[in-house]
Design a protein around this nucleic acid. Structure first.
Length: 259
DNA sequence: TTGCATGTTCCGGA
DNA sequence: GTCCGGAACATGCA
């Protein structure tokens, strides 16, 4: 379930368990490797020491003595350290055997992927252009970014080239807190709307990043949105769903009126 | 059996 | 050039 807070959780997890350890061996499902082969991955990584992992948006990268390992988690990716779970799993698509254990990249649906960036090459060559990270951008800059956009507000917030890290569930959560209907055009919103969106973005990310995940909390839209007659955690109105920005959006018709 | 699912990318049409 | 919707990718679940 990787959105920015989850990937930030994986970054800390990798740093905690695997950073500083030397890679002894790698195994990989060739179909999860996006720009290399199992042999190429081995040549790049074996013998190297895992450096400090970095996150930008939903991308995680980790330098390994020159080359950089780059991971994207798609919709179902995660990391597992052998000390926490001794057995390998059929969906473990890549395994780094390191001194003292192994780090596994698990991804059921394989919509994510694994890349290797050679020494001296920019990580952007695989991630493509990304906007500023949603965790690190400050409020004023985010308001300015939003004010310059056109089109739907939801599509804008999910556009990784504008702002990196927000996905469908987080954007629904932010718009619900900011009381903005997900199908509104950004050009029709007032300054106050944009400021509330920026404030709620900061709030949602701060709270969920502390935990390394989005809390399964019934006071969050995210914790209440599933099910046929899910209700708004704030006012109890039955939640509705519409398509916006190409995905299903859940919103409260009372808290997020059209006008 | 059908529709839907938290990701990105590519394509066609307005 | 801009914006939007839909399909594709791979797999599981209701």
């Amino acid at each position: 379930m990787p959105e920015l807070p989850d990937v930030e959780g994986y970054r800390r997890y990798l740093a905690h368990h695997a950073q500083g350890r030397r890679v002894e061996r790698v195994h990989a499902d060739p179909t999860i490797l996006r720009n290399t082969t199992p042999q190429g991955l081995g040549r790049a990584l074996v013998g190297g020491v895992l450096g400090p992992p970095r996150r930008h948006g939903k991308w995680l990268s980790c330098p390994v003595d020159g080359p950089t390992l780059v991971l994207h988690f798609g919709m179902t990716g995660s990391l597992v350290w052998s000390g926490e779970e001794p057995e390998r799993h059929p969906y473990d698509r890549m395994i780094l055997e390191v001194e003292g254990g192994e780090l596994r990249y698990r991804d059921m649906r394989k919509l994510g992927g694994v890349w290797v960036v050679p020494r001296g090459v920019d990580v952007e060559s695989v991630t493509g252009p990304l906007g500023p990270d949603a965790q690190r951008i400050d409020r004023e800059d985010l308001v300015e970014l939003l004010a310059r956009r056109r089109g739907g507000v939801k599509a804008a917030l999910m556009d990784q080239r504008m702002l990196a890290g927000l996905g469908n569930l987080l954007v629904d959560e932010i718009l619900w807190r900011a009381r903005v209907h997900p199908r509104r055009a950004i050009g029709d919103l007032g300054r106050g709307d944009l400021e509330r969106i920026a404030d709620r973005t900061e709030e949602v990310l701060r709270l969920s990043i502390e935990l390394g995940r989005v809390p399964p909390d019934e006071t969050w839209l995210m914790g209440s949105r599933d099910g046929r007659d899910a209700t708004c955690p704030r006012c109890g109105t039955t939640l509705e769903r519409v398509k916006a920005g190409g995905r299903t959006s859940v919103f409260c018709p009372r808290c997020q009126p059209w006008s």
